[in-house]
Structure formats: structure tokens, C-alpha cells
Write a protein that binds this DNA or RNA. Structure first.
Length: 279
DNA sequence: CCCCATGTTCGACA
DNA sequence: GTGTCGAACATGGG
């Protein structure tokens, strides 16, 4: 599920336990989510230590225990963080549960595309400090966006927006939402996004990120119906801006929803740029 | 049974 | 080396 706003929502699920000491750890030592770490080290590493920090950046989460022990979590396609009471009984897909005196903090992921990694570092791990700015942060500039789109000039803009090295936290629905708001066709070559269109996209990426954080992160509220969001999941949807039919097709390897009446390819690219698809 | 799913990674290929 | 594409990963829902 999670893109940037949902990841922030999950971070907040664990926040009430900040300051509490971990008393006990439950884990599924053979779960695939531990493929990059030795999970047997986790209990000794965090038991008796206080939960001190909780960070989210894009789709990644980072938690500190004690002074130098960190847990790095990616939620993949179906991962969740949940909070329960200390009597909670871990379920089939609760791969890691941290118990404190007052709570249980669970990492749950039935598809196991996510991961959890134990790290040791005196301060914030260096990879974390080097993460690229999220679209609502000041470092996300129009110039940096332009340079990146130029480097990926031939790829469809939809595929480029999913690249976490430049757009941390943007996922399938946020990319579609930003393109729809900017009136950009998802199959438009990234190199053709320039001038006014580039400014529009730079702005809508920031707006979608801010809006998603405001609406979803506090309590997972449903976005309003004047976003593309509520109309994009099934065939037969209607564009909330034009009232015309939406279309769904695979672009950049992912199901992409857009409004053909609102999102046009630039002139000259109308023939040949779009992979044909029968209705 | 079939297809689909808010993600990342790896190997094949141009 | 660079860039792109599809498959694979694992599970559940329609």
C-alpha cells in the first residue's frame, strides 16, 4: 500500500511509544523481510533499550533504540506498522513485534516485499542523511527536476516519476495524481516536459505531496472526490475535472489511470509514442 | 482457474 | 557503461 503519506501515517502509529523501553521482542526469524539482516540479533539489540526516534523519508522508515541501534524498515507493497496493547498475540504475518510495558509495536507484511534491517551507528546513518529531498522540501527545485527529466528524456514521464532516487515517496497513485493535476499525458517522454509544463509538474508534485500528507497521514482519511484518487482504481471511472471517461493502461510497467480529455501528448508525439491498446 | 494489486530488484537485451 | 523492459518475489481478493 504505502507511498509517502501512508508511510508517515504508519510512523505515527509507533510514535506514542517514544521514550518507552522495549521489554520483549517477538519475531519470525525466517521471514523474507529479514533477508538483508540477521534477525536473531534483534532481540538482544533492542531489549532493555528505549525507543528514542522515529523518522520517515519517502517510503523508508528509521527507528532508533538506545543510543546507537537503528531499525530500518521498508513496507514494500503490503507492509504495515500497527500498535497494540501488551497482551497482543502476534498473528501469522506479524514478522516483528516490539513489546513495551504499555504497548506492542508490530511490523506486519503478508506479501513480504518489505524489509527490516538492524543497523549500528553513532548518529543518523550516513545513507539516511544522503537521501534526496522529497517533493515538498526546499531542495526539490525546478532546476533539479529539469536536469533529471533531461537525463531520462526518452522514458515516459510516468515511469520517471516512480524513480525513488529523484522522487522519494512518490508511488503509483501519487504519480498519476500529479500528472493529472498538471494535465500531462503519462506516456509523454520526460524530455518533452519543459517550460510551462515543467513548472506545472514541479508545482503539482509538491501540492500532491502536501495534500496527501495533510489528508492521509493523521488518520488515513479518504481523499476528496475532486482528486483523481477515488476514481482511478477500477475501469469505467469518470474524470472529476472534465466529466469525461478515464482510461487505464499499462505505462512504465504499472497500471496508469489518466484523463485523455485533459492530459494530451504534445503535438508531434501523437503518433508512435503511445503503445497501442484496444478498448 | 484467471487476473490484479499504493514496490523493488535482477537479468536480459539494445 | 547506459538505459529499458519484463519477470520474479509472496499472498490474498475479486
Amino acid at each position: 500500500m504505502p507511498e509517502l503519506a501512508e508511510v508517515e501515517y504508519y510512523r505515527r502509529q509507533w510514535l506514542p511509544a517514544l521514550g518507552d523501553a522495549v521489554t520483549r521482542v517477538h519475531l519470525h526469524p525466517r521471514a523474507r523481510v529479514f533477508r538483508s539482516t540477521d534477525p536473531r540479533q534483534i532481540p538482544a539489540a533492542v531489549e532493555g533499550r528505549a525507543f528514542r526516534e522515529a523518522h520517515a523519508h519517502g517510503k523508508q522508515l528509521l527507528f532508533r533504540f538506545g543510543s546507537d541501534t537503528w531499525l530500518h524498515v521498508r513496507l514494500g507493497m503490503a507492509g504495515k506498522l500497527e500498535r497494540g496493547d501488551p497482551a497482543m498475540v502476534p498473528g501469522k504475518h506479524d514478522h516483528l513485534v516490539l513489546f513495551t510495558e504499555a504497548r506492542a509495536l508490530a511490523f506486519n507484511d503478508y506479501r513480504m516485499f518489505g524489509s527490516a534491517v538492524l543497523l549500528r551507528s553513532a548518529g543518523l546513518p550516513s545513507f539516511w542523511r544522503g537521501l534526496p529531498p522529497m517533493p515538498h522540501e526546499p531542495g526539490f527545485t525546478r532546476g533539479a527536476l529539469a536536469a533529471f527529466l533531461r537525463r531520462r528524456a526518452k522514458a515516459p514521464i510516468k515511469a520517471v516519476l516512480l524513480m525513488q532516487e529523484q522522487f522519494p515517496g512518490i508511488g503509483n497513485w501519487m504519480a498519476d495524481e500529479a500528472l493529472w493535476r498538471a494535465r500531462l499525458h503519462p506516456a509523454c517522454p520526460a524530455g518533452a516536459v519543459a517550460g510551462r509544463k515543467l513548472s506545472d509538474l514541479h508545482r503539482t508534485l509538491r501540492e500532491v505531496t502536501e495534500d496527501a500528507l495533510r489528508v492521509i497521514a493523521p488518520d488515513w482519511s479518504d481523499p476528496p472526490d475532486d482528486w483523481l484518487f477515488n476514481h482511478r482504481w477500477r475501469d469505467g471511472g469518470t474524470c472529476p475535472a472534465t466529466g469525461k471517461p478515464l482510461r487505464r493502461e499499462t505505462i512504465g510497467g504499472r497500471t496508469t489511470c489518466y484523463s485523455p480529455a485533459r492530459q494530451k501528448l504534445p503535438p508531434g508525439l501523437c503518433h508512435g509514442g503511445i503503445p497501442g491498446r484496444e478498448a
